[in-house]
Design a protein around this nucleic acid. Structure first.
Lengths: 289, 289
DNA sequence: AATAATTACGATGCACGTAAGAATG
DNA sequence: CATTCTTACGTGCATCGTAATTATT
């Protein structure tokens, strides 16, 4: 009982003749006759009455045909689905992002994506946030991770994290109760260790956005981890994304901001051309996550 | 791409493993692996990603599986339909009716029925209306045609026809305009040819039902055709069912009754036992006609 | 080592086509 | 006599199973 046989069954019903149906599905009269006989034998019931000039469905045949159409419809739907998905089957996506984000958000997501779209090669570049913009502008990558995307740019949010104040345990502000917070204004008055994580979005830019400036920058470092050492040594306080916090926080007091500030990571496509089918699939999956 | 393969596809999705799915549908690992590879090759797209411990559907695979379930559902529906229809596949129905009805209503209907239920033998007996009742009562037949069934008896209407007055062309009442009618009262006053057609429902019983009696019965015959000859010869007028009218109406004036009277034919089952599956199928088909 | 998938290969069987036969109008 | 379905028979492809291979944990 092959699938072709169900097509044949419906064709016989539509044409009122095995011969005509056979021609329609590309079989011999003989093959069609045998196939129909075989189906009836398998089901153990007569589906058509053979009269000299025409073969018409029995009552049971009519029911069966109706459901056979459903079956064939589903089969056709499968074929359409596959054909429509064909552009997304193969392809390449180059994604640029900056350190931390790659490991924290992108990697687990891409693992799932690669599982769902095994034909699409996804390569990632680990650069700075400014370089992402350059690469996007030059169309050297398909997608890039940007921080705090402008609303006019269509961007898909990948995740966000919260800026946290980090102080030496013995710092006066660190003596507040367990669930206390610290305001950006207070923080900016302190001796400060400015860490950038290689990003242009850092404590300084965060302050600038609300008209605050750091009063007393003692050191400026690129690596977040360096900043934590300096804070432990009592050089100053610092402000870092939650994601960058170390597991070992001995000697550090981590406090939320009174008015929480976030940085959002989003994936954006090239500003110059629409995303490829592969990239579109990735963005769609991200949006539906 | 066999139907079993679609079952396999769904089973793989459900079990997350080709091996487990193979066992579930009764195949070897090898056969299953080959089958899946074959399906993917035929569709020209990868449906699963093979990882060492599990094989999970790709995005396309998920869509395909969804529709494959529809397909298999339809297939299962077909199997159920056939199984449920099995009692109606074979059987015997004996139907008793009386002349005219058999030819006019029953035969074309039974022709269609035999086409739709070729496994059911339908035999017909041609008897009088009284005999039908006797046969039904004695459970010697499955179905019988009765005239004007009592409402309390569950009966399926086969058809009806209209009582018509038949007069000699030169009869005084026959001189009325083309679309004129004649009342039962007028008719019963005339010299009358009483025809019965072998039925107990005839002009006399029709009159008795409304308190009229035939004033002047000149002849009483069994065959309708005999009555028409007598009317042509001017022996009297008669009242016959429309169905019984001859094609050749030379010398006859056929007029409707002023208050039309009908006789209804209906199929009823035995009053003692429920109808067989086969008989039920016939009654259902008649009711849905 | 254990589990899972793929590959190789031989065998079975099913479905097809050619061709002849039967039935019906 | 033409049309349609069925039967007979031989062939070929598809699919299956056994068993060996690969790959991963």
């Amino acid at each position: 009982m092959n699938l072709m046989h169900w097509r044949l069954l419906v064709a016989v019903a539509d044409h009122g003749s095995i011969t005509a149906a056979a021609g329609h599905v590309g079989m011999t009269q003989s093959a069609a006759s045998q196939a129909m006989a075989g189906m009836e034998a398998t089901l153990g019931a007569q589906l058509f009455t053979r009269e000299p000039r025409k073969t018409l469905p029995t009552a049971l045949g009519l029911s069966v045909i109706e459901q056979a159409r459903v079956m064939l419809g589903a089969l056709q739907a499968i074929r359409s689905t596959v054909d429509e998905a064909r552009p997304m089957l193969r392809g390449t996506i180059r994604i640029a992002s900056f350190p931390m984000v790659l490991a924290t958000f992108l990697t687990p997501f891409l693992q799932r994506f690669r599982q769902l779209y095994p034909g699409i090669d996804v390569t990632t570049l680990d650069v700075t946030d400014n370089e992402v913009l350059t690469l996007l502008e030059a169309d050297l990558i398909d997608l890039g991770v940007v921080l705090n995307p402008k609303p006019e740019r269509q961007a898909t949010i990948l995740g966000r994290d919260c800026w946290m104040a980090v102080l030496p345990t013995n710092h006066p502000l660190a003596q507040r109760p367990a669930d206390a917070s610290v305001s950006l204004e207070e923080l900016f008055e302190q001796a400060f260790v400015l860490a950038t994580g290689g990003c242009s979005a850092n404590a300084r830019s965060l302050g600038a956005a609300v008209g605050l400036t750091l009063r007393d920058i003692r050191v400026e470092v690129r690596e977040w981890s360096s900043a934590f050492s300096l804070v432990r040594e009592g050089v100053g306080v610092t402000l870092v994304p939650e994601m960058a916090l170390p597991v070992e926080r001995q000697g550090l007091r981590v406090m939320p901001l009174t008015a929480p500030r976030y940085r959002e990571f989003a994936l954006v496509g090239s500003p110059n051309r629409p995303p490829s089918a592969a990239a579109a699939a990735l963005l769609k999956m991200l949006a539906e996550r």
